[in-house]
Simulated scan of single mutants.
Amino acid sequence: MTAQLACSVGDVPLGTALRVELDSVDGREIAVAVVHDENGDFHAIYDVCSHGQVALSDGEVEGCLIECWLHGSQFDLKTGMPMQLPATRPVPVYPVSIEGDNVFVDVDAPKPL
């Protein structure tokens, strides 16, 4: 499977995240947070905190980090690495491309950790 339409650019205001559900090549539904960081760049990260099992898309975006609203863990949007405890395990990040006003995400090609 290739990149899938996740949302429109206008669906994700600067400094926010949007939860979308995308299908993997094996038919699994993957929860993805599409994030428009404060620098204007778009990112896609698995939308479940590796510590608290809650949606990262409900958290705050600070620079190139997203913070889990429940326990305060922060994840780097480029690498998925935890930058703030209590999370210690990374979450997958996915390639993003912008075509016109559309945001595409490829959940079958996670970036290496």
Rank of each mutant, 00 (worst) to 15 (best):
L56P: 01
C49G: 02
D41I: 04
G72E: 10
V91A: 09
C49Y: 00
R89T: 05
E99W: 03
G27L: 00
V105E: 02
Q84I: 06
I45Y: 06
L65C: 05
A6D: 10
V20G: 11
D37W: 09
F75R: 03
S24D: 15
V105F: 10
V32A: 01
V32C: 04
D11Y: 07
H71Q: 06
G100T: 08
C7T: 09
A6C: 00
H36T: 13
P112S: 04
S24W: 03
Y94I: 01
L56F: 03
H43P: 03
E67L: 12
M1I: 07
E62Y: 03
T79H: 08
A31L: 09
V25W: 05
R19I: 00
S8N: 15
G10T: 12
P82N: 07
H51C: 07
C68R: 09
L70I: 11
V105Y: 09
Y46I: 03
V32G: 00
Y46L: 14
C64I: 12
I45K: 10
M83I: 11
D23H: 05
A87L: 06
M81A: 13
D106N: 15
Y46S: 13
G63M: 06
L113W: 07
T88N: 02
I30R: 02
E67C: 13
K111I: 14
E21H: 12
T2I: 09
V105L: 08
S50P: 04
D37G: 07
F42A: 13
V61L: 03
P92M: 02
L5C: 14
A87Y: 00
H36D: 13
V103I: 15
D26L: 10
G52K: 10
N39Y: 12
I98W: 02
A44V: 05
D108Q: 11
L5M: 12
Q74Y: 05
P92F: 00
G59P: 09
